[in-house]
Amino acid sequence: MDIIVCIKQVPDSYDISWDKSTGSLSRQSTGAILNPIDKNTLEAALTLREERGGFITAISMGPDQAEEVLREALGMGIDKAILLSDKVFAGADTLATSYALSCAIKKINRFDMVICGKESYDGVTGHVGPQLAEFLDLPQLTNSTEIAVKKNKVLVKQKIEDGYRLLEASFPVLITVGKNINQPRIPSMEDIMDAYREKMIDIWRGEDLNSNTEGFGLNGSPTKSQSVYVKKLEKGSAEILKGEPDVTAKRLVEILKEKGLL
C-alpha cells in the first residue's frame, strides 16, 4: 500500500513571541516542532505498512528549516520525504496550502491513501485534510480513531460529538486522524543518524508542480489577516460571598447570570 502523509512544522508553544510592529508571529525567535498530531499520523502510516507492506512518502510545505520535521519523519521510518519550499508558497492560507499539496500529490500520482492530522497545533482550523480531499476528488474519512484495511476497503472508527461511527470507503482515500489513534514510536538513535546521514529530502519548487502558480501562496489565499493581537488580561477584583450556603449559592447564581456566564 502506498501512503502519502502530510506533515507540518509548527511553532513550539513554549517559545512563542510576537512581532509588535506587524502583529504577526515572530518566527525567527520561535522554536519549531513537528505538529504533535502529525506524529500520530506518521505512526498510523507506519503501522499500516508493517501490516500490509508498501511505501510511505511524507510531504511538508514550509521554509527550508521545515526540513527538520521531515528528518524526524525519516527517523521514525518513512521511505521518502518531499519539501515544498519556494517563495511562491509563502503566505498561504489553508486553501492555498491544500492546493499546493494536491498538486504535489498529483505529481507523485501513485498512492492508495493520504493521511493528514485532523488539525495543526498553530492554525487549529482542521481545513487542510478535507480541502485536500476535494482537490484530489477523494472520499474523506475524518477524525479517525482506528483504521483497518479489509480486502479493497478501508474502515475507520470516527469520533463524533456524542460517540463514534464506523465508516467505509474504497481506495484511494484521504483519512484525517486525531491524537488518540495510537502511541507514536520513538525513533531509535541509529534511525536518527540514518535520517541525517543516509537519506535525502527532495525539494520541490513551485515550477516543479506543473500547475497554475496563481493558486499558490498569498495570491491563492482568499483569507487575509487584518491584524493579530494578544488579548490583554486585566487583573480583576475578588468578591467573597459570606453567609449561609443556600443564600450564598443563590447569590452566586445571580452574579453568574449577570455576567452572562449562565
Binding site: 520513538i186 536518527i192 541525517y196
Partner: peptide, 19 residues
C-alpha cells in the same frame, strides 16, 4: 548542536518519559 544531536536529545527525553 547538529540537527541529529538535537533529535537524539528529543528522543532520549521521550524515552525517559515513557520507559
Amino acid at each position: 548542536l547538529s540537527g541529529e544531536s538535537k533529535m537524539m536529545v528529543k528522543a532520549a527525553k521521550d524515552f525517559a518519559l515513557k520507559e
